[in-house]
Design a protein around this nucleic acid. Structure first.
Length: 505
RNA sequence: GGUCCCGUAGCUCAAUGGUAGAGCAGUUGACUCUUAAUCAAUUGGUUGAAGGUUCGAGUCCUUCCGGGAUCACCA
């Protein structure tokens, strides 16, 4: 491929401008810049000085240009806002103005030194004395133009194609300010969660991403290989079993925020890698964790949104209302019209579901069928923050059974906006019961997939040393971010979501 | 993986089976208070790829690539 063919016509023109700058002794990518004010600071300083001229050196990216014969206007954008540059032949120099017109483009980063003033049209601007290129843009940004309507900046014909936006997130972020805002909120959520947990004496830890035995959830793992050890390793599907080992070690309250990997289908609420918070709290049960969850989410709302109310996809949601707590049995009775106590086994439950024309999965256990009922008939209705509790034992191998009801475990899930946001239980700490559950699960999984044997002997050994009773909790950060930023798709809250590889890339 | 929809200029989008277009961006010129600046002129295309039907395909058919929605899957 010749050099000409890898660049578009516009790019070749810009490369020529870059070469011209170099030939004139102006380095288009200098290593150091001057900056006395951000754009916001410069405006504040000018106002604070009673609108008397204030000297300032600003940096930023050129976002608009309006060129006239002996006068030019341009807006630059930095991390704090935008500001208009005013270049007039009288002050800036006729030759310098022509040089600017010939060599500077939208998207270039510049350093501008001059004095703050107000234009005749009333906009606080920088009357530029000296302008310098600090990073030349070869490829044009995909945005068209900004229009100011009632003080709001409206950007026209901006990058909209989702594929390009995700593959070239840098371009998306550069031209779509609302995308930057999503990730600012995401960071604020993480900060607030850490602040809350730290305040409550939790210790933040990091546990292995590469694991010889995966576990803690029912999901297919990614497999990788360590060459020197000649050993297959799995990317973790949860943190659970490692974090609970730490309770055995005497850490009473522990949490981890990090990445989980699940080799499963991809849709608008699932990405192959996603960010999870898990915490474990010794001497707490699932009821205590439920209260703590409400408290934590209200704290996050206050820190991130400044209150408890937000809107998600047209629904007004309020974190501060007491979160309704509904048992699985009551929820299924109310929303699916089935009294679970009358159908004690998979066959009879499947029969009544078929009678009601509900979807029935072939060969599903009673617990699995109950989960399906909840997923189809209850979950989509739970728009306001709500808890479902008391789950079937056979879909919860790490949760403690209810006293007096071995088939029901002390577990809850939190819902908001019509999807699951968290999952928690009174953690099983009886090593003998745990071993039986693993064996049970091994058998039921074996029927589907011979490869799935998540028996973790070392975890059982840890538990035999004695694990304090504790409540555990897991929450998907991506989904919380979707809710708080009103995004319908998980890819909108992940900077570089996974997409299929394109030919030749 | 199944089904449906989509892919046209750098960006946003048009085009009954009949000459591939517009706005913005770009280029050239005019303009000393513009702000989607304005005015005049103008460049830019293997219509995602490869086949097929047809006198003629952006449009119809097949396969492939990529994306979106939905279903399946996901304690």
């Amino acid at each position: 491929m010749s050099e000409d063919q890898q660049f578009t016509e516009i790019e070749r023109l810009r490369l020529a401008k870059l070469q011209a700058l170099r030939q004139q002794g102006q380095e288009p990518f200098p290593p150091r810049v001057e900056r006395t004010h951000s754009t916001a600071e410069a405006i504040a300083a000018y106002e604070a000085a009673g609108e008397q001229p204030v000297s300032a050196t600003l940096v930023g990216r050129i976002r608009s240009m309006r060129l006239m014969g002996k006068l030019a206007f341009a807006h630059i954008e930095d991390g704090y806002g935008t500001l208009q540059l005013f270049l007039r032949a009288d002050d800036f120099g006729a030759e310098a103005l022509q040089h600017f017109k010939d060599h500077y483009d939208l998207g270039d980063f510049v350093e501008a030194q001059g004095e703050m003033f107000r234009t005749k049209a009333g906009e606080i601007s920088l009357n530029v004395k000296v302008l310098r290129m600090i990073a030349k843009a070869i490829t044009p940004l995909p945005a068209a133009k900004d229009e100011v309507v009632d003080g709001e900046v409206v950007r026209h014909a901006t990058l909209a194609d989702p594929e390009t936006r995700y593959r070239q997130r840098y371009a998306d972020l550069a031209v779509n300010p609302q995308v930057r805002e999503v990730f600012r909120i995401r960071a604020a959520i993480l900060r607030a969660l850490r602040e809350f947990l730290d305040k409550h004496d939790f210790l933040e830890v990091e546990t292995p991403v590469l694991q010889p035995v995966y576990g803690g959830a029912a999901a297919r793992p990614f497999v990788t290989h360590h060459n020197q050890l000649k050993q297959d390793l799995y990317l973790r599907i949860s943190f659970e079993l490692y974090l609970k080992r730490l309770l055995v070690g005497g850490i009473e309250r522990v949490y981890e925020i990090g990445r989980d990997f699940r080799n499963e289908g991809v849709d608008r609420t699932h990405n192959p890698e996603f960010t999870m918070l898990e915490f474990y709290m010794a001497y707490a049960d699932y009821q205590r964790v439920m209260e703590f969850t409400e408290e934590m989410m209200n704290f996050v709302g206050k820190q991130v949104l400044g209150g408890s109310k937000f809107s998600y996809q047209g629904h007004d949601i309020d974190l501060a209302n007491a979160w309704p707590r509904i048992s699985i049995a009551d929820a299924v009775q109310e929303f699916a019209g089935i009294d679970l106590s009358k159908y004690p086994d998979a066959a009879s439950l499947a029969a009544v579901m078929a009678e009601k024309k509900y979807k029935v999965r072939a060969g599903g256990s009673r617990g699995k069928l109950i989960e399906d009922l909840v997923g189809d008939h209850v979950e989509p209705l739970l728009i306001q923050p709500s808890f479902l509790y008391d789950y079937p034992r056979e879909v919860s191998p790490l949760a403690k059974s209810q006293p007096g009801d071995a088939n029901t475990v002390e577990r809850f899930e939190g819902y908001m906006g019509g999807f699951e946001i968290c999952n928690a239980f009174s953690e099983l700490n009886d090593p003998l019961d745990q071993q039986a559950r693993f064996e049970e699960m091994g058998r039921s999984l074996k029927a589907d997939d011979e490869d799935l044997h998540p028996m973790d002997e070392d975890y059982l050994r840890a538990m035999r040393y004695g694990m304090p009773p504790n409540g555990g909790f897991g929450m998907g950060i991506d989904r919380i971010t979707m809710l708080f930023t009103d995004q319908p798709n998980i890819r909108e809250v992940i900077l570089f979501p996974h997409l299929r590889r394109r030919e030749g890339e």
